[in-house]
Design a protein around this nucleic acid. Structure first.
Length: 723
DNA sequence: AGCACGCCGACT
DNA sequence: GTCGGCGTGCTC
């Protein structure tokens, strides 16, 4: 009797043995439906064996092997096993997370479960039969509001879900299933490449069929995309697949349009979170069949099966959105490199501001560095100037000199982009009498004052509350907004320049699917003079009419406790600067700051990445920080903070005898100590040797899994970005 | 993580 | 008496 080892979506570091008469070696990588505890689950067959590892009497038979999808290829399973080992995360969660959601359940058709009240339930409600207040309330809700959909069900508190299950069991409510239905042009000519671009393409082509990591450091506007396209053309012509990873796409279908225009005959699919589940599953399957030749996707696309892979490109490789910060905390950029080595194909990491890790690897010769130092067509870099606010008291958040510059551009019918990395009206509403300010009850954060919809909003958990009329501590009615968000800056500019046409672009104004395309249209057609927006606006948009970029509130990251904040600020400022003067107009960038003599700003003004990188590198070396040490963070969370800290104290105790060559720090509250009603704490471990760190992590995790102590949820964050 | 089982207080 | 609260332990 053959047995199968099944990866299941549970936080346990093992696979589960099932008996399965029909199982054969070629079933490895297929999905399978199995009984698990009291219910059924869908998992992935990781191996087929002759004998179970556990007591055979405990083994249950598998229900059914699902063959509506081709098996996950061996190289992908190998990648997933590596991810599970390296990030010390349960294999089942890793494997199932790599699968499009639609394939995580057995049904291939997209069904949305809803719960509706039954006729028995209506009768019971009228007769007042149910004595449980929760159950009665649920029945009343089902009757008045109609059936509850999957989303609403997921958001119910556990007590209500339990009550609902009981109602279903007693026939007072029933499950309903709805089935939802799922949902080219002439080739554009490549431009003539610059000498630098051609040199890179030529150099790349010499070893294009072997593994090699290229770090393509190109200043903003130097045409990295053109280089990618030229290199991709060769790969596509050889009938092989290209994986192009991009940061969170957000508002950018532009790259996709460019690719389709350049390769009209080449099947292209995208993989990102805003696709409908069925679309995503179809695109994934097209990649797996090898039918899709170009796969453009965000970080999770690094797990797409690609049988004919010939090249990987990671655009904006420094972008922190490549790091997954929930569940398996992987770095898609690092895994892309692992995958390129595994498949023996070249990989290009592109950036105007490479991460210090990549910079170090290139300096040490592990990556091949290539540079693009020129903008094509003799376009010049924007001039970057500082607007010092050190001696000023700024009225509406925008310095007079900056307002004047904006007015000047508007008068010349040029467009202006104003960045403020905070949405809402004001980040804090403060009582000047006693110092009280509204906070979120579930998160360790102030709630943010919003004015377009008047409310206090928690930006961490989304909780909405009414704006208090007076201080709840002292009764003072004079509560003042402190600090500036996009809405307040918009108001300032509107009152200073009443004739200018303003558009605010942030998460609040781009919530609907159609909103952004319509705004984009308005910008391109010059129906807008001043754009006020968050970082959303900074990624990958070329607005030809924009000649001035203004940056507000950059100082916040200068003296942050996070040692990576200045690296990220520098990258952001250079990226944002790149938005000015993309067309024929010369660009100008103004950065409002109270610290005009800070060396970071000097480097930004000089567009000097190398000087800044060298400086940071030296700082990190002296301080003993990455990339000179390797880190891992044990993160714990629990409803009460002592639970999380107790767990970490216990973990530190377990670590002590294992920690050869590894420093174990003290448990500490997390940077965000409370999130969504859960208290969070963390424990840092680090080592100068990656090998020593991982040898330690291997043994430590075994001990942690063994210790069935203190109930806290925990994850290991290997190579953390946020500490 | 779910989910059972099990043992305690407060309602009909 | 049951309902429902939550702590413990298991899932092949």
């Amino acid at each position: 009797m053959p047995y199968i080892k099944v990866a299941l979506d549970v936080p346990l570091p093992k696979v589960f043995d099932y008996s399965c008469a029909e199982a054969a070696p070629h079933h490895v990588g297929l999905r399978v439906r199995v009984p698990f505890g009291a219910k059924q689950a869908v998992g992935v067959i990781m191996a087929v064996t002759d004998a179970p590892t556990i007591d055979p009497s405990k083994v249950r038979p598998a229900r059914e092997i699902l063959s509506d999808l081709a098996p996950l290829p061996e190289d992908l399973l190998e990648l997933l096993r590596f991810v599970s080992d390296y990030y010390h995360h349960p294999i089942g969660e890793v494997v199932l997370a790599a699968l499009p959601t639609r394939y995580r359940s057995g049904t291939t058709r997209r069904t949305v479960a809803t719960v509706a009240i039954s006729s028995d339930g209506s009768a019971a409600l009228r007769a007042g039969l149910d004595r449980s207040p929760v159950a009665a309330a649920m029945l009343a809700m089902l009757e008045s509001r109609g059936p509850l959909g999957e989303r609403e069900l997921a958001e119910l508190p556990p007590a209500q879900r339990r009550a609902l299950r009981r109602l279903v069991a007693r026939g007072f409510a029933r499950l309903v299933a709805h089935t939802a239905s799922p949902v080219a042009a002439p080739a554009s000519m490549p431009p003539t490449l610059t000498a630098e671009q051609s040199a890179f393409v030529a150099g790349f082509s010499e070893s294009a069929d072997r593994f090699r990591t290229w770090l393509l450091h190109g200043i903003t506007g130097s045409g990295k995309t053109e280089v990618y396209l030229a290199v991709m053309a060769r790969v596509v012509a050889a009938s092989r697949q290209v994986l192009l990873l991009v940061p969170e796409i957000g508002l950018t279908p532009q790259l996709e349009a460019t690719l389709r225009a350049r390769f009209p005959a080449c099947p292209l699919v995208t993989l990102h979170s805003s696709l409908a589940a069925s679309q995503r599953a179809d695109n994934w399957a097209a990649a797996q069949r090898g039918a899709a030749r170009i796969v453009v996707g965000t970080r999770s696309a690094v797990f797409a099966p690609l049988p004919r892979l010939g090249l990987i490109v990671v655009d904006e490789e420094h972008d922190v959105s490549y790091k997954q910060n929930e569940g398996v905390r992987y770095s898609a950029r690092d895994l892309a490199i692992w995958r390129a080595r595994q498949r023996d194909v070249p990989i290009i990491l592109g950036s105007a501001t490479p991460s210090l890790e990549s910079y170090a690897a290139a300096s040490g010769g592990r990556y091949t560095l290539a540079r693009l130092t020129q903008r094509p067509n003799a376009a010049t870099l924007p001039t970057v100037k500082l607007v010092s606010t050190a001696a000023l008291r700024i009225e509406g958040g925008v310095a007079p000199a900056m307002l004047a510059a904006i007015e000047d551009r508007v008068a010349r019918r040029e467009q202006v982009l104003v960045f403020i990395n905070r949405r809402g009206y004001a980040p804090v509403l403060l009582c000047y009498a006693c110092g009280w300010a509204p906070v979120c009850p579930r998160c360790a954060a102030h709630t943010v004052l919003h004015r377009t919809r008047t409310l206090m909003l928690c930006h961490h958990c989304g909780r909405e509350e009414a704006v208090p009329a007076s201080c709840t501590q002292c009764g003072n009615a004079d509560l003042q907004p402190v600090g500036f968000g996009t809405q307040r800056i918009e108001a300032t500019i509107r009152s200073a320049l009443p004739a200018a046409r303003l558009l605010r672009v942030d998460r609040d104004t781009t919530r609907t699917r159609e909103a952004w395309p319509r705004m984009r249209q308005a910008i391109v057609q010059r129906e807008v003079d001043v754009l006020v927006g968050t970082q959303l606006l900074s990624k990958g948009h070329d607005f030809e009419g924009v000649s001035l970029v203004c940056v507000l509130n950059a100082d916040r990251s200068l003296y942050s406790t996070d040692f990576r904040a200045s690296e990220q600020l520098f990258a952001q400022l250079l990226q944002v600067s790149g938005r000015a003067g993309r067309g024929a107009l010369p660009g100008e960038v103004l950065i409002q700051t109270a610290f005009a003599s800070h060396p970071l700003y000097a480097a930004v003004c000089a567009h000097d990445y190398d000087a800044f990188a060298r400086m940071l590198f030296e700082e990190r070396r002296l301080a003993g920080l990455p990339p000179f040490v390797y880190q891992a963070l044990l993160r714990a969370e629990a409803p009460r903070s002592h639970r999380a800290l107790d767990f970490l104290a216990h973990a530190a105790g377990l670590a002590a005898p294992l920690a050869a060559g590894v420093s174990v720090y003290d448990p500490a509250p997390a940077a965000m100590p409370r999130l969504q009603g859960r208290e969070r704490a963390q424990l840092l471990v680090q080592s100068q040797s990656r090998t020593a760190l991982h040898r330690f992590l291997d043994r430590w995790c075994l001990a942690l899994w063994d210790a069935k102590t203190t109930r806290a949820r925990w994850v290991l964050d290997v190579d953390p970005l946020e500490i």
